[in-house]
Amino acid sequence: MYRITRRKALNDDVTLMEIEAPCVAVKARPGQFIIFRIDEEGERIPLTIAGTNPEAGTVTIVFQKVGYTTRKLDTLRENDCLSDFVGPLGEPSHTEGIRRAAVIGGGLGVAIAWPQAKALHDAGAETELIVGFRNEKLIILQDELADACDRLTVMTDDGSNGRRGFVTDALRERLEAGAEYDAVIAIGPLPMMKAVCELTRPYGIRTIVSMNPVMIDGTGMCGGCRLTVGGETKFACVDGPDFDGHLVDFDEAIARGRMFKPQEREAMEKKHICNLTGEVR
């Protein structure tokens, strides 16, 4: 069993948890992910690691209440336990040699973009961080972001905080103003990562994306997480989750993401989670 040592709501939809998993905490590198399962009946769900504390033996995860399992996870409190927590999975990010970077985070992806930016910034790279949210209420980690970069831009779709527009608007402006980067790292919803890649493609800037498709085992066994990258089939779990964004077939990945949508709805309808007690009926 894996104990939740800390739980903090980052906004109405997004929650941060620290999970006691010493072996994972020691081994994890930026870009890798874990798979958790809440209980015996639970699904296996992958989440990118948002941070570690090797001394305390904890791993930080940040999740958004989007489906049945993440809603159920959100009902757990400090000192509750997860049945399973395995990792670190996937290849660590390769950020060696990057001297100037733009890190782009969208929504929940900001929880992963932030430690990536911080690692680059701490390693001495000139790091810009561009983050975007739908609106002011959904902003997360606002206080931490500024310390992780040399230049921070916050965008909201509706202009309720920061600048109005998408992260790509901010990035386009920078590129048109002549900003030069060794790499752009984009972490967020698939349409956002796709748009960033389209934007950087004509500039020939290396663009790294972090893919998070549906998977079961996370070790290469099920093949459910397969993507087409540069015309070849790749497994996000063992070949990724980071890929050269200019080679990823995003339309296919977006279509595959819809595979179990009706079942997700069915689970939400048939298995009611009480908002007050967290009880499942």
């Binding site: 009946e41 296996r44 179990f260 069915e266």
Partner: peptide
């Protein structure tokens, strides 16, 4: 056994 178990199949 879905939705008794949480993992779907179609």
């Amino acid at each position: 056994t879905f939705p008794r178990y949480d993992t779907p199949i179609r």
